[in-house]
Design a protein around this nucleic acid. Structure first.
Lengths: 146, 146
DNA sequence: CAACAAATTGGAATGATTCTAAGGTGCAAA
DNA sequence: TTTGCACCTTAGAATCATTCCAATTTGTTG
């Protein structure tokens, strides 16, 4: 039985998906993934680095970038970009949009009914075949929400 | 009567909107705007620079960035970002989405019925007040389209 | 255990953009 | 019309996120 403290956070997902791609489960990858699952505030690579360092003081920023890229490749995490700001990372795999609060800089997940994504794709003229749609709202969130 | 060669391209828009913001009409700003209107392929700042230089050999890249920023501020042009790539510029002011062709890297405008934008905003939970929605499709355009 | 592939690391390199300081430019008031 | 002044442009330096690189470490497999 595994003894890693945070194992409960990713019961089978991480090791499984990594193995599926022929990749190894490393302490760095586990920890980076844990950090994303634990505080789902769309952190940047730098922020992930800061949260990870106390646990694994020897980790390098390059490794954090590598791990994040790996997690994205394995479909465990999504990279989110907002107007040339640093890339943010999101472990929410459901199809959803993002709301960028102009006042606080915070990013919120917005769940949308799948039918809406379908309707959008249906609007594409013939000849356009989309395999992904990204939707980003920009504005102000009146109260402090999650 | 004005004698500027490209004046037909921006009959009143540019000078007017600049004046509205208390800004001057300069040869650099006119030319950058002309370039955007003439070839609407969502060029980057570097590409705009390349197209502008033959007309105005002394222009600097910094100025191109400045002009583009000014045009965006005046609501004459929209800045478009796609996953940390360089910012692209688009003089299409109608509300529309973008389709990013993964094969060619080209960006296409996709006009969407305004009601769809409204429907999207209607999905936002209470407390979220969006003043803009950005929609980006990613995929392949089967044939070569505009 | 030996050999080899996969991962990590620190630092250098890159690319887009912004900043800075130093001239130009042109309207406006005297 | 001169002079003042705010606006603009310019070249180059600086910045920031990210990627690349070469060397080392780690883990797995024969």
């Amino acid at each position: 039985m595994p003894t890693h403290a945070n194992n409960a956070l990713h019961p089978t997902g991480l090791a499984q998906k990594l193995a599926d791609s022929g990749l190894r489960t490393t302490p760095q990858r586990e920890l980076v993934y844990d950090v994303l699952l634990t505080k789902r505030d769309h952190p940047t690579a730098d922020e992930v680095f800061a949260r990870v360092k106390p646990e694994l003081p020897g980790i390098s920023l390059a490794t954090v970038y590598n791990c994040l890229e790996t997690l994205v490749q394995c479909d465990l995490v999504r990279a989110v970009n907002f107007e040339r700001g640093p890339t943010r990372y999101c472990p929410n795999l459901r199809p959803h949009a993002h709301f960028h609060d102009e006042a606080t800089g915070q990013t919120h997940d917005i769940d949308l009914p799948p039918v809406l994504f379908a309707k959008l794709k249906a609007e594409l003229p013939a000849g356009f075949d989309a395999n992904a749609v990204e939707i980003t709202f920009r504005g102000k969130a009146k109260t402090s929400l999650d």
